[in-house]
Design a protein around this nucleic acid. Structure first.
Length: 266
DNA sequence: AACGGAACCTGAAAGC
DNA sequence: TGCTTTCAGGTTCCGT
């Protein structure tokens, strides 16, 4: 689930609960999501106050009164606010936080266990090395053009590099390249400046559009099982292109499924 | 150095 | 119905 918009949604779920709150209970139900030991992780959280909850790209950062914690949702992770006391399905970590004499319980759910949670005394390399975040920093077309000029990988593969831009995943790359009418297989360096201009706008628009679908207080990701596919071409291989009515095909790039309209993405 | 492929995991959906 | 295969929005490691 999680690309930039979903991780931003997760931030909006946990920030009001954790921000300014004291962590009063920690329960590690599956230590495989941790990088350090369960003991050290618990000790770094328990009894500490959360000063801020930030997001960059697909990473979440908790700034504590002492040290920091980082959460990456991997492929299937999500943070939810729990009402009862029972563990939820796929719950791997539980953090209870008290603020204004009220205690609330956040749960990290992750069926596939690709997510990670770690504590550190300062910013971790994966965080420091992130490129500009489209929501926080905007997408600078000139800078993006320069960066793409130096790469010979397909443009879609380049967009997935988190040091180039932070937060773009398989869906946003697919959607933005379609909106910009650029073939995802094109070598990154082959894009003209004006094409990168279109791409830069398309990236931001696609992210903002996906985020706008994550509405209301309800804790739910877009496109849960059973929900309609909200994307323009992602997951729509075999259907008709919404722009030219041609066929949407699916190829593999860098091991990732990639939907495109070969007629209008050039 | 660069690049494809496998690995890490589990569950849902599609295929037979 | 039920068993098997395929696929999944991320990242990292390994071998060529």
């Amino acid at each position: 689930m999680p690309e930039l918009p979903e991780v931003e949604f997760a931030r909006r779920v946990i920030a009001p609960v954790l921000g300014g709150a004291e962590i009063v209970a920690v329960s590690i139900r599956d230590a495989r999501i941790l990088e350090g030991s369960a003991r050290a992780t618990e000790a770094a959280l328990l009894g500490h106050r959360v000063r801020a909850v930030d997001r960059r790209g697909k990473w979440l950062r908790l700034s504590l009164d002492e040290g920091r914690a980082f959460s990456h949702l991997g492929m299937t992770g999500k943070w939810v606010l729990a009402e009862g006391d029972e563990p939820l399905r796929f719950e791997r970590l539980r953090v209870d936080a008290r603020k204004a004499r009220r205690t609330r319980s956040l749960r990290y759910l992750d069926p596939r266990l690709f997510g990670r949670f770690l504590v550190a005394s300062e910013d971790i390399p994966a965080w420091r090395e992130l490129g500009p975040d489209p929501l926080l920093d905007g997408v600078d077309a000139d800078a993006l053009f320069d960066a793409l000029q130096r790469r010979k990988a397909p443009v879609k593969v380049a967009l997935l590099d988190q040091t180039l831009l932070a937060g773009i995943g398989n869906i946003q790359a697919t959607e933005a390249l379609f909106a910009a009418q650029i073939d995802p297989r094109r070598p990154a360096a082959s894009l003209a400046r004006r094409e990168v201009g279109r791409l830069a706008k398309a990236i931001l628009r696609s992210i903002e559009r996906t985020l706008s679908l994550e509405t209301g207080p309800e804790i739910a990701y877009v496109e849960e099982p059973g929900a309609p596919n909200p994307f323009v071409i992602y997951g729509r291989q075999g259907e008709r292109c919404p722009r030219c009515r041609g066929p949407l095909e699916k190829i593999t790039l860098a091991g990732r499924g990639t939907v495109l309209c070969a007629a209008c993405q050039r």
